[in-house]
Design a protein around this nucleic acid. Structure first.
Length: 110
DNA sequence: CGTTTGACTAACA
DNA sequence: GTGTTAGCCAAAC
């Protein structure tokens, strides 16, 4: 299969379980491209155009901050989506980030 | 094909 | 804890 960089990012993003979040850097590391953390976010930018669509709202920065909320249809949608999945969001940040953090490396295990 | 960009991270002040 | 700077790299324009 064509393991495009974007496709890999999307694939992992879809693996994020409900009620859990992860960081861009974590995804980048799972791809073996820890340096390309920005590329992960860059790819997420096209998440809405990707098929199938990816739960970009489950991806936050290393601080658990909803950095990409403004890229959604509405900045508030990201919080709503997370809240709807059981992830509490306070001041644009994920509450108990470490607690809800999901490590893709544990799921990939390849 | 060259330049700009960017939903990041880490390091430093 | 907050602000700024630098490094990073692949895609978009």
């Amino acid at each position: 299969m064509n393991t495009n960089f974007y496709e890999q990012v999307y694939e992992i993003a879809r693996l994020i379980p409900k009620g859990r979040v992860t960081s861009y850097g974590a995804i980048a590391k799972s791809l073996g491209a820890a340096k390309s953390s920005r590329m992960v976010g860059y790819a997420m930018r096209y998440a809405g155009t990707a098929h199938p669509k990816v739960p970009a709202h489950r991806v936050v920065n290393s601080s658990g901050l909803l950095t990409g909320k403004f890229h959604f249809e509405t900045p508030e949608m990201m919080e709503e989506l997370l809240a709807g999945e059981g992830v509490e969001v306070k001041d644009d940040k994920v509450v108990n980030f470490k607690n809800v953090f999901w490590n893709p490396l544990e799921e990939i295990t390849e």
